[in-house]
């Protein structure tokens, strides 16, 4: 739970959030049980108003630079404004089926 906690803490500290979900999706991938490699972040923040999708993701990636450099292999992001969140009624994306790449990844 170490990375899950630090992701949550850093996003809460770095962004004005109306809603946050940090999901460990590692179990769906080619990694040992209990791994913290694949995460999904759903962040709802008024700070995203007027920002492009790329800028929103970069903001989150920057807050989580340490985690991305140190163990987080995949980070799926849904970054929306409160208005978008209200309109959509919840998360819009789902995880694609794993293709087993970590097994063949020369860097692991």
């Amino acid at each position: 739970m170490r990375l899950h906690e630090s992701i949550t803490r850093k996003l809460e500290a770095g962004l004005a959030l109306e809603h946050l979900e940090v999901l460990n999706e590692s179990h769906g991938h080619n990694v040992p049980a209990g791994s913290e490699t694949h995460f999904r972040v759903i962040a709802v923040s008024p700070e995203f108003e007027g920002m492009t999708r790329v800028a929103r993701h970069r903001r989150i990636n920057a807050l989580l630079a340490e985690e991305l450099a140190g163990g987080v292999h995949a980070l799926a992001i849904e970054a929306v404004t409160p208005a978008q969140w209200a309109e959509s009624g919840g998360p819009q994306l789902d995880a694609p089926p794993c293709r087993g790449g970590m097994k063949n990844d020369p860097r692991g």
Binding site: A74, A76, A95, P96, P97, C98, R99, G100, G101, N104, D105
Partner: peptide, 9 residues
């Protein structure tokens, strides 16, 4: 032959 679900998508 994608090696990752995100790339495959």
């Amino acid at each position: 032959m994608p090696q990752c679900g995100f790339s495959a998508r």
